[in-house]
């Protein structure tokens, strides 16, 4: 199969819009997202209903938040596969603080986020100072946290502590559109950070040309460690949100590696390169949306969930190939 790249022969404006569009990294995934929505809506009238959109939003939001962090880390040239476990552990940390140590609700939540940031700090320091590849560092951290989670929780789910029930729980995930609102807030904020701030520019530089960034005086390790901390903190936030939404703290939140891998898949489908130096937060959101829509749509049209992973695998491969192809087009079609 070959993709037609003929620019439409229409007026110059349309052509400029077209080139402008394909030059955007998010282009391919946006097209796929729209196509899927159209397809599923045509297949079943249930698709674009209020209730189903809420389902999709709830499936998209927490993992998209993790994916935002993953994008930053991938752009800086590293990876974190322990983040899903941080997501599972964070609600327990809150629960331990509240129910065992009598910490009030808000400080307990902040403490959980802080401890998550600490996990990121450790990941970052081991990777940058001790020069252990981040894949290995975070693989070790994954099992470490898993062990801590299982031994401290005895693998039992627990109820949400009563002191966070009420407004706090509603605002932080239980409300109908709470998780989506947080997700959009996070996406917009970090899109700005990546594209319009010094931190974003330096993150791109570190992943794009590490020696060059060092020579320019950028504290390369600091940037990387910061991004490790960012992923872990966002992971904890997503885990807390999920616990508030399902109204229970479950060691299987995120299903072990599922959150991590889905977030990485979302980032990659959205146009973030694993090699570092380029990536987009909006693309990751769209990538996550595509994955959520696929799963949800399959359910609705009554296809068994089994081939879903097959489709997800293909989606990752096809989008990666498309990204390679598009980025070559972008390079070639410059001014």
């Amino acid at each position: 199969m070959s993709v037609a790249v003929d620019k439409p022969g229409g007026p110059a404006l349309a052509r400029r819009a077209w080139t402008g569009f394909i030059r955007r990294r998010e282009a391919s995934v946006l097209v796929v997202a729209i196509a899927l929505v159209v397809y599923f809506q045509a297949s079943t009238p249930l698709f674009l209903t209020d209730g189903n959109l809420r389902n999709i939003a709830q499936a998209t939001a927490p993992t998209a938040i993790v994916a935002v962090g993953i994008v930053f880390l991938l752009v800086s040239g590293e990876i974190d596969i322990s983040v899903g476990m941080v997501a599972a552990l964070a609600p327990y940390l809150m629960h331990y603080a509240i129910d065992f140590y009598g910490v009030p609700a808000v400080p307990a939540i902040l403490l959980a986020l802080l401890l998550a940031a600490l996990v990121g700090l450790v990941n970052g320091l081991i990777t940058t100072r001790l020069k252990v590849p981040s894949f290995v560092t975070t693989l070790g951290m994954f099992y470490l946290l898993y062990g801590i989670l299982l031994t401290t929780s005895k693998a039992y789910p627990v109820a949400i502590p009563s002191s966070v029930k009420g407004d706090l729980q509603t605002w932080l995930g239980a409300g109908d559109w709470a998780s989506l609102s947080w997700c959009l807030l996070v996406v917009v904020f970090f899109h700005l950070v990546l594209t319009r701030t010094r931190w974003g520019l330096h993150t791109i530089s570190v992943g794009g040309n590490m020696l060059g960034a060092t020579e320019a005086g950028i504290r390369v390790n600091r940037v990387k460690v910061g991004n490790f901390m960012l992923v872990s903190t966002l992971g904890a936030f997503a885990g807390l949100m999920e616990a508030f939404r399902i109204n229970s703290i479950d060691p299987n939140i995120g299903g072990g590696t599922r959150i991590t891998f889905t977030a990485i898949a979302a980032a990659v489908i959205g146009g973030t390169a694993l090699a570092g130096g380029s990536g987009t937060v909006i693309g990751a959101l769209l990538g996550m949306f595509v994955l959520a829509v696929l799963q949800n749509g399959f359910n609705l049209v009554g296809v068994s969930a089994n081939p879903f992973f097959l489709i997800q695998g293909l989606a990752i491969l096809v989008s990666m190939i498309a990204n390679q192809y598009l980025s070559r087009l972008r390079r070639a079609g410059g001014s």
Partner: peptide, 12 residues
């Protein structure tokens, strides 16, 4: 300093 390897970031 202007470095011999130039230190430009291709992606920027």
């Amino acid at each position: 300093t202007v470095y011999q390897d130039l230190a430009l970031v291709n992606e920027l």
